[in-house]
């Protein structure tokens, strides 16, 4: 029972690391460049969730002056807001490059691209 409770306490961390695993697997395993970018996004989302889960305190209120103490830590939220902005920019640049690659070669498959490049 205690093992199960300990697990329930850490459910968010479990989810965060599950997302990290899924993201990494998609990033490495998928042949499709768009899916690789999706994998990268899932990977980053895992990190975001990790930070936010770390800031949470059971029974605490949101960090507003009108709410009673104790508060959850507001700093990780701010950090992750920055990290999300960075993530969006990265996705935009990645998709821009993918459009160029598709225009040039007409494929998004990594294996095919490697063969085409070897022929050049």
């Amino acid at each position: 029972m205690t093992g199960l409770e300990a697990l329930a306490d850490r459910l968010y961390y479990l989810a965060a690391f599950l997302l990290l695993g899924i993201g990494t697997y998609t990033l490495i395993g998928s042949q499709n460049l768009v899916k690789k970018v999706i994998g990268m996004n899932v990977f980053q989302t895992g990190i975001f969730l990790f930070f936010i889960a770390a800031a949470f305190i059971t029974g605490a209120s949101p960090p507003l002056l009108t709410a009673p103490a104790p508060y959850v830590s507001p700093l990780p939220h701010v950090l992750i807001l920055t990290a999300i902005v960075v993530g969006v920019s990265l996705t935009a640049v990645a998709l821009g490059l993918i459009v160029r690659i598709y225009d040039e070669y007409g494929t998004l498959n990594e294996e095919t691209l490697r063969e085409v490049q070897a022929d050049e």
């Binding site: 990494t24 990033l27 460049l33 690789k36 970018v37 990268m40 990977f43 980053q44 990265l90 640049v93 990645a94 490059l97 993918i98 160029r100 690659i101 040039e104 070669y105 691209l113 490049q117 050049e120």
Partner: peptide, 18 residues
């Protein structure tokens, strides 16, 4: 110019982001 640098850029982006 060309696709080679775009592929190199994307590869750099994926690995660098990780």
């Amino acid at each position: 110019d060309g696709g080679r640098s775009a592929i190199a850029g994307l590869k750099y982006l994926l690995v660098g982001t990780v």
